[in-house]
Design a protein around this nucleic acid. Structure first.
Lengths: 357, 357
DNA sequence: CGTTGTGAATAAATCGTTTCAATCGAGATG
DNA sequence: CATCTCGATTGAAACGATTTATTCACAACG
């Protein structure tokens, strides 16, 4: 059972040198058809599988890229991962997917691991705002592309969606619907996404000439359904409930929504809800969720292409900072009902009434 | 920037031999404290990172296990993956997550890749019913644990949930609710999950003394939301609609549900829906979804432990076949309404009325 | 004083590939 | 017939770590 067969044995069986076998594997065209066949036959017979470690050791670099995300259970990231995988596969690279659960410690460990693996490049949605680990990688010459992170580092590409504008879109919409007490349920403010989306929300207030006090914030430990449930219960317990809730992502929104529905609070009549990311499940929620859509798959695809391009021509590579634009998708969870509670400020700004999916 | 620093340079700086540096890395206790400190200082100063390929080449095996799933975008699998990752991390192993999208070709490619990486073991939910790739891996001496697959191979562990019983639970419930025209929306019958769940559904009919004609099947290409949408539209188009739909997994169910809700078909009054997996989003759906729950995370955790145990003591390892039991979680999407359409067969078999989550 | 024992460090062999300079054989050329 | 080309093949030297047998320094012991 334990039969690690090496290139050497293949060579022996095919009566050629190991160099020739290697050539069959890597540049089949330089070896004569007859011998090539012989070698291939030997490979098949012995069930030989190239030892990637040895290959890598010699050639210096792996054929893999690392993808480090905050939460694999979040469909936003798996959709993004799919984009990454497609692009990577096209270029003949494997993807090593790492999950940090928003933990700095886990992020550090994973980056360490990827460095040891000598991966070609790393795509990362940082959990550590200091970017310490990323800096170290860069020093070691590993290409890095920051995902969903503002263009802070000069020697690093980044692909992001303008979260600030996204936050502004969401809150502008809520204001237009007549809401003037809004709670933002957000993930850890340590994370850039949380900060930017919040900043955008404040922008919306400012541009509408509203006071900052219109927006209160509930911060929960993580951007997941559990966090949303917790925030939802907190809202229920309040004597005075806001008329609208803007959630930092859809998982939070789904959690909040679930609590409201179960408690008999009507959405959007009693409380409107807006999410962020527009994951597929948002449209299928108890009340279809208004959300800020990001081109998830395209983000991943673009990032992968960037990192591959950089590793292929490290010298003439220019570090790009690509920013996609978010798009508000209005659904029932925030749509004005026939009897609006407050009729002030009725703008007509809800035109892009995108369909279900 | 491009400075791949090796153990050799560390040795030079610390004025010791490479062997000693290796010892500091792997058995710190055998080296004198003073020199150990010196070496560690050198490592820090040079920013040395061990080359995992070289380590692996010499020691023969990687510290990683492969996890091959049918669809990373399915929360069922990401939850499972989380269980795998936890157990693997505890044992000091990394996890390489591979996505096959139910495609045999992709599965083959990924297994090839994992073999080249000389991973410790592989956990796989097979897309290829012939298990060809798995067989090859076994021949090469790689430990394999089959996930969600019946115990067919004698020399391979497996961790599964009794899908047949799960299917039976679901349909028995629907029959008890008085439905006698049921459509099963299922994924590719090539996949074991699809076959078993269908077989279970038939079991339910048999035990209830019903004719097989009670259950029709719509087979869609893949176990995802898109498939569910397609099936939903197909159902809508029918002149005569069934009173209940049993979906092979929750993504299909969410798709069907979405079509129904949008078309104004009332759930469960006009049509009841039951899903499978009980993913978190099932409880948050437009109509909270009745579903068959599987211990997702525990499946992953158990499988990882098995594969690690096997690789640590390959000889005395006994191949286990572990089967978990599914559990029906009844929610609104299938609950009897005040005015049942057909009042026959009113059993009391819906006791485990599990709460929302 | 010579022998032995012990803990610490070293030197060299090794893992399985890739790569590159060197070699070979055969046909073309002068 | 000697020489040159050129494609095909070979052999050996890396790559960067681990591992094992060996050496070394020095203290303990009879």
């Amino acid at each position: 059972m334990k039969t690690p067969v090496s290139i050497r044995e293949v060579a022996a069986l095919a009566k050629v040198s190991v160099g020739t076998v290697s050539n069959v594997l890597n540049r089949p065209d330089v070896v004569a058809p007859a011998t090539r066949e012989r070698v291939l036959a030997a490979i098949a017979e012995l069930g030989f599988v190239r030892n990637e470690s040895a290959r890598q050791l010699r050639s210096g670099t792996a054929r893999a890229i690392g993808l480090v995300v905050l939460d694999v259970a979040n469909p936003f990231f798996t959709d993004m991962a799919r984009g990454v995988e497609e692009a990577a596969t096209e270029a003949g690279h494997a993807v090593i997917l790492c999950n940090t659960d928003e933990s700095i410690a886990k992020e550090t460990r994973h980056l360490e691991l990827l460095a040891e693996q000598r991966v070609h490049g790393v795509l990362i949605t940082p959990a550590d705002p200091s970017l310490e680990g990323v800096r170290k990688l860069r020093e070691r010459g590993v290409s890095v592309v920051l995902l969903d992170y503002p263009a802070e580092l000069p020697d690093t590409c980044s692909v992001a969606v303008d979260d600030r504008t996204g936050g502004e879109l969401a809150v502008t919409h809520l204001l237009a619907e007549g809401h003037d007490e809004i709670v933002m349920v957000n993930g850890a403010s340590r994370l850039n996404q949380a900060r930017e989306r919040h900043a955008g929300a404040l922008d919306a207030l400012r541009k509408a000439g509203r006071d900052e006090s219109v927006l209160q914030v509930i911060e929960v430990p993580a951007f997941n359904v559990a966090g949303g449930l917790r925030a939802g219960e907190q809202l229920l317990a309040r004597a005075h409930r806001p008329s609208a809730v803007f959630c930092g992502n859809d998982l939070l929104a789904l959690g909040v929504l679930q609590v409201m529905v179960r408690a008999g609070v009507r959405v959007p009549d009693d409380v409107a809800i807006v999410g962020y990311d527009d994951i597929d499940f948002a449209a299928a929620a108890a009340v279809p969720l208004t959300s800020v859509r990001q081109p998830r798959q395209q983000i991943g695809r673009t990032a992968a292409q960037l990192v591959i391009a950089e590793t292929q021509a490290p010298e003439e590579h220019e570090h790009l900072h690509i920013t996609f634009s978010p798009e508000l998708v209005i659904r029932e969870s925030s749509r004005r009902t026939h009897k609006p509670k407050r009729s002030r400020n009725v703008s007509t700004r809800n035109s892009p009434l995108a369909a279900g999916r």
